[in-house]
Design a binder for these strands. Structure first.
Length: 273
DNA sequence: CACTAATCCTGGACGC
DNA sequence: TGCGTCCAGGATTAGT
């Protein structure tokens, strides 16, 4: 499901529900078999702890408690909502009680999501975080020179390259196609062959596409919802993703689809070179 | 080392 | 209506 804009939107929603220093009074899991099993002692270590902050790193949500950090991933189908008696669903796997008024439910049909726990001081050595590349919205670290150096000699398609979280984080299958359309670069071009002017364009449109998607609450295809239950309205802005056979909005050519590195990929054969 | 497929899981769409 | 097949926003791993 969620790429950077959807995770960012989710974190913003969670922050609205959870003021700084709110206490996690209790938590309950109806299943523990997520993509990784719930760590031993998870519930005991967090019960009664104060929540200091919620942050996003890559596609991970980080719940900062006093001594521990919960590293949480939404997987493909994970989402959070406020509990209500009238709205209980299958695949509600976790319940977090922050006081009487704030009862949050984690819902995840495919269970590709997970919860991990690290000591705050060990955050940097976490297996989930240690190999991550820069944030694409950080202009100091994410720029054309960085990408060109990183791509030197690489034969993977540029789209696969942009989805590699060791290169840059947060870009998944939808936004990779959209970014390359906006940049006018064909997804299957080898990363090592992309010209510096094209990297410049990719950096610029990445910033633009991700920020516009965040502003619209992300992209809803099937499962994803903002935490307030609304759809993510970037779906209506998609230029190529899921539009095989439809007319390109710029040149009316038929949008094409192919599988690249195992993932569906969409592009305009006239606008992208 | 570089790169690709298989894998975890459920549900919805589609063809017959 | 029902059943089988394929596909889906991710990221690790196992394999070539």
């Amino acid at each position: 499901m969620p790429e950077l804009p959807e995770v960012e939107t989710t974190v913003c929603g969670l922050k609205q529900w959870l003021p700084t220093n709110i206490c996690l009074e209790s938590l309950r899991f109806t299943r523990r078999d997520f993509r990784i099993p719930l760590p031993r002692g998870f519930i005991n270590k967090l019960s009664g702890q104060r929540l200091i902050d919620i942050r996003r790193r890559a596609k991970y949500i980080l719940f900062h408690f006093e001594q521990h950090i919960v590293i949480h991933h939404l997987g493909m189908t994970g989402n959070w909502r406020r509990f209500s008696l009238e709205d209980q669903r299958t695949h509600d796997h976790a319940h977090f009680h922050f006081g009487a008024k704030t009862h949050l439910v984690f819902h995840d049909p495919r269970r590709f999501g997970f919860f991990d726990l690290v000591l705050a001081k060990d955050q940097g050595s976490s297996r989930w975080l240690r190999h991550l590349g820069p944030e694409p919205l950080d202009e100091r670290e994410f720029h054309a020179e960085y990408l060109q150096a990183k791509a030197y000699g690489k034969k993977v398609p540029v789209k696969t390259f942009l989805m590699d979280q060791k290169v840059v984080v947060g870009i998944g299958n939808i936004y990779a196609s959209e970014i390359l359309f906006q940049a006018g670069v064909r997804p299957m071009v080898m990363a090592g062959k992309v010209k510096s002017a094209q990297w410049e364009k990719i950096v610029t449109v990445t910033f633009d596409v991700l920020n516009r998607a965040i502003a619209l609450g992300g992209t809803s295809l099937r499962d994803y919802r903002q935490t307030d239950g609304k759809l993510g309205y970037f779906s209506g802005q998609l230029q190529v993703y899921g539009r095989e056979g439809l007319a390109c909005s710029l040149c009316s050519q038929s949008i094409r689809q192919a599988v690249l590195s195992g993932r569906s990929t969409y592009w305009c054969p006239r606008c992208q070179k």
